[in-house]
Nucleic acid binder design. Sequence first.
DNA 1: TCTAATTTGTGCGTATGTATG
DNA 2: GCATACATACGCACAAATTAG
Lengths: 331, 331
Amino acid sequence: MEIVNFKESSAPKYKQIVAAIEDAIVKGKLKKGDQLPSLNVVKEKYNLSRDTVINAFNELKNRGIIHSVVGKGYFVSSEDIVLEKKIFLLFDELNSFKEDLYNSFLQNLGKNTQVDLFFHHFNIDVFNRLIHDNIGNYSSYIIMPANLKNVKVTVENLPKDKVYILDQAHKELEDYPVIYQNFEKDIFNGLLSGLEKLIKYEKLVLLFAKEKQPKGILKGFQLFCHTHNLNFEVINTLENRLPKKGEVYFVLDDKNLIRIIKKIKTAQLILTKDIGIISFNDSLLKEVVANGITTISTDFNLMGERLAEMILNNQQLKIENPSKLILRKSI
Amino acid sequence: MEIVNFKESSAPKYKQIVAAIEDAIVKGKLKKGDQLPSLNVVKEKYNLSRDTVINAFNELKNRGIIHSVVGKGYFVSSEDIVLEKKIFLLFDELNSFKEDLYNSFLQNLGKNTQVDLFFHHFNIDVFNRLIHDNIGNYSSYIIMPANLKNVKVTVENLPKDKVYILDQAHKELEDYPVIYQNFEKDIFNGLLSGLEKLIKYEKLVLLFAKEKQPKGILKGFQLFCHTHNLNFEVINTLENRLPKKGEVYFVLDDKNLIRIIKKIKTAQLILTKDIGIISFNDSLLKEVVANGITTISTDFNLMGERLAEMILNNQQLKIENPSKLILRKSI
DNA sequence: TCTAATTTGTGCGTATGTATG
DNA sequence: GCATACATACGCACAAATTAG
């Protein structure tokens, strides 16, 4: 590995080091598994500051081209130097609408990017460990903190310009760029655009159970019912509940969506005529479930698209992802 | 006691020694009272510094697993080890039925296990890189090789007793424990158990497009049609295809499932009466899609359950995961 | 009893990457 | 860019306990 003429070039020194190592890998002088000269050696040989060398090596590490072992040194881990980005993606849990988000994100990133996906399952210890274990290994960190508390200390260990928050704006993480759903507004406006259909029913029933669900949904629902003077009820389970004529159910998850559809059938009620259903978070099949389920949903494809865009262009924005009512035959 | 791959792994050497000894104790290779190889022996055998070995032995000593006698050696003092499990899970791609598999796997593992999920997207380079980058960091490796070729060399870099194959048995990886679908048999038997309903139709149409899909499906379908002397057709796209009365469509993915349902509607055909649908891989919503879609599917919950069981009990089995026809109103 | 070899235990020096200010 | 503290890794020297001959 030869690095030449630092003075003559206008490029930052660390970039020149990066380029020199890339060049050595491309030319086959450095192969997978080879050890790089140590920080001290490079520093001495080329009269650089240790920090400059670290800077260069870190960029290569973030891109997954080299890796380091304490007490030993730096090693070439990939000869694929087109890998420009390595992205750490931390979701709360795996469910069907994440599929759209994830796949559209991947599609809009381009080939030279590696995305590793993790799940914290609403467990703060898992959240902390996953972040800690991966500090320094990625060029971007996309985090879906959901409703976890006390995440700030951990997230602050990451380089600030590489962190992006996803799905829910988080009070502790207001300084970070984010693509979020405005649940309260989305639910309110979603219901509003279905108002004409909804006033046919006598009562709106929200099934709001899980700790996991954003409180904005509840707020938006209540606000909508109050401002339009609609009779409503919030329940936390469908067990022992018999759906009655004149009710319209707003269910947030797919398991309960199926439950209510089956209960409606066994009660011999006719969907749309006697009773209505609105679901949350659209997925492919809802278009054909029971002739089409009306759904309030954010656009997960767009969310993935914008996320990719923001990261590729190194932007630090706060974007509210649009949501809408997808009107189908269930109300 | 075998210690592998010092170079490739990012884990500190002394930690790897600790893990190897724990492993040996768990597996019964080392029992209470047994003497460990001396510092010098280990140092020579694995080309380590004496301090590194001491470091490892000290950690085990502090945890009460071994003890030492000056001038004699190190001895196992306890077989009671809480082995921390870290599981590497490599899927092909993210789609809705993986949700069941993944979640049931997690649920059956117990709380103290960390599972990291990766996707190779049917790209052999990604496959190789993901495995290489994670050698030595996990206690089990679960791999879904799908139809990738030339995977053996890479997989062989992993410790053999820690690798499990999932979903498809793979010719190159016949020596590894596996939980697999027998696609040919599953499709044949699935169709067979629906024979009574199927003979009402004039023609069976299989939509078989993707490179990704296992060839066993095609074979099973063809075999079934031949042995029962049924008129059939295999097509690779629904574009420009008008569904006709008397046809029954077997579609493998959800996007095409929706397409065919919509085409049937616009053609003003009546599902079940004029035309039939069978889909592949069950998911929650299919129970209520168009009044219920008949599906041939393996039991992904059971697959996850058995996988967890096999790993927790350190078994090396070859298990065929059961599949069945879930008869609903679409045929 | 003496000796030599082996083993653990300890200390010191050097080198590496990591983290902080 | 510099300084400092820390964890890991390697190598050497020596002391103390054990064992074999």
